[in-house]
Design a protein around this nucleic acid. Structure first.
Lengths: 244, 244
DNA sequence: ATTATCTATAGATCTATAGATAATGC
DNA sequence: ATTATCTATAGATCTATAGATAATGC
């Protein structure tokens, strides 16, 4: 019936609407939270079941396997991000819009941060998921390019079509790698958690990408906006002389 | 005796010099190759031993555990990269130098590509390694900043100190994320391998970062250089109308 | 004696299923 | 009847060690 494979079909069956089977939803929520905390790799189906105080058998009743859970979480994530990357209809873009996009996307990345942590493994283990994700990427890229084009049209940026595709790609990479970057390179043992400040440093970094393209008219305004996300020097230490 | 913990000491013991114990070296080489091919996560100590046709016990004679193998590979990688990011003594930087750095680093990243694939897990599982890696990152950052400063001094780039730290950080992120990006977003099932062309697309992308900072004097030359790494449009598809 | 290697194995998981039982919806 | 849940468990790994041999270096 369905054109594509349906190996990830859910089992909601004939359930009314949204209501009921809280178990399925609880499994997803618990998985998300455990995956984010400990990494998908170290969370087994046993852990998830134990965390919810249900039996492993019950978990397998609701999901074919761990991959199916991940697949469902992936879909949530994609919906979330696509909901944010919309061009406002019938008006030109404002400097504030840029901020809105970035904050929304970073929040989404944070809430589903396990995904990018083990992305390669997750995608390689599930070709269907990989296919979905590549489509998602392409859609995102054209949305981001449209945003840059909009910023150009609004006279905020001075960019050629060539600049735009380069910018969009670099933006994607910086944004999707930001949390990984933080955890690998900046998090010390003491400061085990990512503070909101660090989190928002990513916004600063993305602004850096387009700073050279700002028009004279908007340069000061945008740079002032960027400054609000300036990270304190403490976390970007360049070989500190006499630290420790 | 040693100030830091020595949990990763090797057991080369009283061995002459470089010679002998090819087994230890063979374990490292096989691990690197298997990790790169299949991902560290899916390669167990059993696999490594089987691949070398030695017993698991023998493997554990040479390495305390899998982490110790990874630690040793990490050290190799860091030496390799630091060897490349040297400022040439007694002369100003040339446009060609930039290329040399990028090619060397990308080659290193490729040869140890498993590291960045599972970086977060590897670092979180081994605090000592994490400490080493943070130091490595900081050293790299100041080297990269020095390179940008050198390109400024050579009249190739027109950059402020502020620009430099932003550029260096963005460069780091793009470079270290490039292969992951390729595998997640561009590799389709058919084209399972990363072609040299794709690989070098990363160089193009890094050039994009600094393009707006080129001085009038060098702009044409550097852009011509960048064009040599221009990826064919085929692999950066923007929602192709009528594809497939 | 020391270094290198093998065999065998304990103990800890994990995944995924079969089969029984309980709860629900007409 | 259908849906949800539990118990129990087979089968597959993996890691890491103990203890026995073999090979080497003085």
């Amino acid at each position: 019936m369905n054109t594509s494979t349906d190996s990830h079909k859910t089992r909601t069956g004939t359930r009314p609407q949204g209501q009921k089977s809280s178990t399925r939803e609880r499994i997803l929520a618990a998985s998300l939270s455990l995956f984010n905390e400990q990494g998908e790799r170290s969370v087994s189906t046993n852990h998830i079941a134990a965390h919810l105080q249900i039996s492993p058998g019950n978990l397998y009743y609701h999901f074919k396997n761990k991959q199916a859970i991940i697949f469902a979480l992936f879909e949530q994530y994609q919906q979330r991000v696509l909901g944010i990357l919309e061009i406002p209809a019938g008006r030109t873009l404002q400097p504030q819009d840029k901020l809105h996009y970035l904050q929304g996307v970073f929040k989404g990345l944070w809430d589903y941060r396990f995904l990018h942590r083990d992305m390669e493994h997750l995608l390689l283990a599930d070709p269907e998921l990989h296919r979905h994700y590549r489509d998602f990427f392409r859609t995102c890229q054209s949305r981001v390019e449209a945003i840059f084009r909009g910023l150009g049209a609004a006279g905020i940026l001075n960019v050629s079509e060539d600049d735009i595709s380069g910018l969009a790609l670099n933006t994607w990479i910086i944004v999707t790698s930001w949390f990984s970057f933080l955890r690998c390179n900046l998090l010390s043992d003491e400061a085990g958690t990512i503070s909101p400040e660090l989190l928002q440093g990513g916004i600063y970094q993305v602004f850096t990408l387009e700073r050279p393209y700002l028009t004279d008219e908007y340069r000061d305004e945008m740079i002032a906006l960027q400054q609000r996300y300036m990270p304190r020097p403490s976390w970007l230490v360049h070989d500190p002389a006499g630290g420790e």
